[in-house]
Amino acid sequence: MNLTLKVWRQKNASDKGKIVEYKVNDISPDCSFLEMIDILNNNLVELGDEPIAFDHDCREGICGMCSMFINGRPHGPSDEITTCQLHMRSFKDGDTIFIEPWRAEGFPVIKDLTVDRTAFDRIIEAGGYVSVNTGSAQDANNLPIPKIDADKAFDSATCIGCGACVAACKNASAMLFVSAKVSQLALLPQGQVERKQRVENMVAQMDEEGFGSCTNTGACEAECPKGISIENIARMNREYFSAKISSDNV
């Protein structure tokens, strides 16, 4: 396959940035999208040019590091996959492909396609955990958990923290990400003790990071590589409401 790439290049956080065009030729359809970028970068390096900076690590769809906005969609044209799982067979010979970074106030660009997602870490630090010190746990089977709850909690817990939900949202809202963690712990008995302050603190931190509000368009769910449902957002709204009406913080 021969392709034309239009790639966002931005030297650093303060640079204005622009789209630059590249050609890549003789790409196998079995090649992954990131391997196609590897080929381009290798060519650039051997010409002495700077390769395109992009985040990636596990290349099997689980670490959540890769983050490309491809032809107007986070992680590209296929559903429920990350950029690293996208293969060139999803494109046609002669295609022009636009590649941009995640765009959101909460995710400032560091360089080219690399953005800063530490806002997500700070949201988790605000309450995305059960406060249990190592060593103080009881036997794991002392507390049976209905399979249906455990499975639902698992579905929420599969979030990989990539930020595609924010990138997809016209408001750059982080509700899907935050609600997935709130839901996981709200569904499990271990999460009950801190249930109220968790949702209050995590939402407060989310707002502080500059993420937008949710207007229920569902773009996040449609683009989530792990198929996290917006049911989680509904659950978080319920959690938030019931926490607030009985909160000790008001």
């Binding site: 059960v130 249990v132 103080s136 746990a137 455990a150 271990q190």
Partner: peptide, 13 residues
Amino acid sequence: IDQCVAQGVPFAR
């Protein structure tokens, strides 16, 4: 296993 379950790790049940 005890520690992870207490943290809210959703093991298969």
